[in-house]
Design a protein around this nucleic acid. Sequence first.
DNA 1: AGACAATGTGAGATCGATCTCACACATATT
DNA 2: AATATGTGTGAGATCGATCTCACATTGTCT
Lengths: 340, 340
Amino acid sequence: MVRKRATLKDVAALANVSRATAARALNSYGYVGDETAQKVQAAAEKLGYRGNRLAQALRNGQLPIVGCILGDIQNPFFARIAHDIEVLARECGHNLVIGSSEEELDQEISLLSSLRSLSIRGFIVAPTSATNNAHLQSLNLENVPLVLIDRVAEDVESDHVVVDNEGGARKAVEYLIAMGHRRIGLLQDDMRIFTSRERMTGYRTALAASGIAPDDRLIAVSQSTVEHAVDATIRLFSQKMPPTALFTVDSLMTQGALLAFRSMGISIPHDVSLIGFDDFNLATFTDPQITVVSQPVSEIGRAAARLLFDRLSGKSDPPQKIRFETKLIVRGSVSRHSAG
Amino acid sequence: MVRKRATLKDVAALANVSRATAARALNSYGYVGDETAQKVQAAAEKLGYRGNRLAQALRNGQLPIVGCILGDIQNPFFARIAHDIEVLARECGHNLVIGSSEEELDQEISLLSSLRSLSIRGFIVAPTSATNNAHLQSLNLENVPLVLIDRVAEDVESDHVVVDNEGGARKAVEYLIAMGHRRIGLLQDDMRIFTSRERMTGYRTALAASGIAPDDRLIAVSQSTVEHAVDATIRLFSQKMPPTALFTVDSLMTQGALLAFRSMGISIPHDVSLIGFDDFNLATFTDPQITVVSQPVSEIGRAAARLLFDRLSGKSDPPQKIRFETKLIVRGSVSRHSAG
DNA sequence: AGACAATGTGAGATCGATCTCACACATATT
DNA sequence: AATATGTGTGAGATCGATCTCACATTGTCT
């Protein structure tokens, strides 16, 4: 048998008061007699009344939900962030809607549009594109709080939380150069992505500082999945003059590179040196352990959520721009290359 | 300047028709004159009108959102499932709210209650507890579609999608026994969890079938994170008579075990043999490659979402119970143990 | 011509909760 | 006694979209 949800009207009827009084009693505002309040509470209890958040939201304009659009939940980096945001959202009495853009701008736009029509209170977005952001700007126009995460979008004035991608990449490549490498490969994802650009810039800057001419044949572009990274790595290292070292821009791609090297019989660090951006679980299990640029993953999500909920509670400072440091963690996947 | 969202009323006013007519034109139902329809479309276009889904939902009872409560998004297994569900939900014009119970029953209950007050259309849940499920039963009572995923809940009549946990565990342990092991450790998570129980049963069954007495000292319980698994493994293998082989019940725990072994100087498969439930990215990179029981992760989420959307579109067959096969993938982490 | 459908449109109710306003009654203040 | 203040309550508007119903207007068939 299908039981309908009890509404405020039902509660009011059972308690023999008007809807207005029932609402006052349940939300404790305005004047309500003690006795009346008790009656209403009892009635609500008895009916198992729970307010319809939809109706509440329609009335006062917003749903206690925040939206979060990330590149790919399957990337442990984003999974961690999503998790941290959800925890903080829950603490603040909100639910979290998670959407994945799958690094497609179109999907990001349609997802955002669909979530906006839900009158969601605010958004945390890792924008797919660094440049193409009318949809994000329009959030500003309509005063919907937005926090950018992991990536910055040009022309969008809002809080953001990112890491020092360029510096991290530079440190990694400088280290490779210091170890004697000159043919340094780069395995990166789509250039529209902000982090990809910044890491690429760090890579180029480090090369330039040492007077090493950039070489496009050393750069492979792949989607950020293990499978795609395997293929891209194989292509990169099937050339006549393959790199002697590789820098990968995220942990899934690092793992792809590892698998590719194994399948090609290339040994680390003997045949090739490797540094990955973003640490991962088994980086210290592999033999050798993998040298990485680590970012403070556990702080990013919390920081972004913090910023968003500050906005939601009315803070109107100028946009805050948080940039976390990255750190080169030297382990064993880089060996000295004697110039030949 | 803050622009307000255009409402149907605005569109109607601009097109010089009533709200009712505007609604008809935009949703194409009932009779509308061609010319009028055009006018309305144009007005909507001009104002950038997008319907308020809250209002729509309040009117017709439900929001085009499905909820999904999983154990932990950071587990790649659940991340993959969440991703697949989201993709299918999007195809069906729905958004996905993801919550994480963090394997706490209380959290699962409060999350569910909070999502229900959103008038969400249906749920996909991986219940924390195999037995304690009044909150899930009440979904049945109020006719809210529910699909259980990865885990079954007693006394809850609903579709579910699980894998053959017991069989998978049995195959793994039988294989270890066939390779001469008799002191076989089990690294498992909380016994309230359905999969944990089933895998444990498989483990016990295999032992019993070979006349091996169970020994509680060989069983370690840990939360399903790499860090906790490391600790649990270290405790397990610090005993006087440690196991000669270990079976771990999920991939994060497998990875934890790997890290623990490394830190303890225990080598696989020389000192200890290892089989993990659930495959993972680097299982074929490590040396030796890790033998695992694999489950068809890519099908689970889709299957569950499929079932849910079938229900949402009115299907009312008896509950469907899907159980996928698991497969023992033999790689190199198990070696023959000569009885000592 | 009269009856009857088909087509097109608007007024108003509805979903459920909230909030403003008006009113009633009591007590306090001049 | 007359006015002000404090308390407690209900009627009704509101949020935005949808849907029922009533009312036109046209065309069609006997």
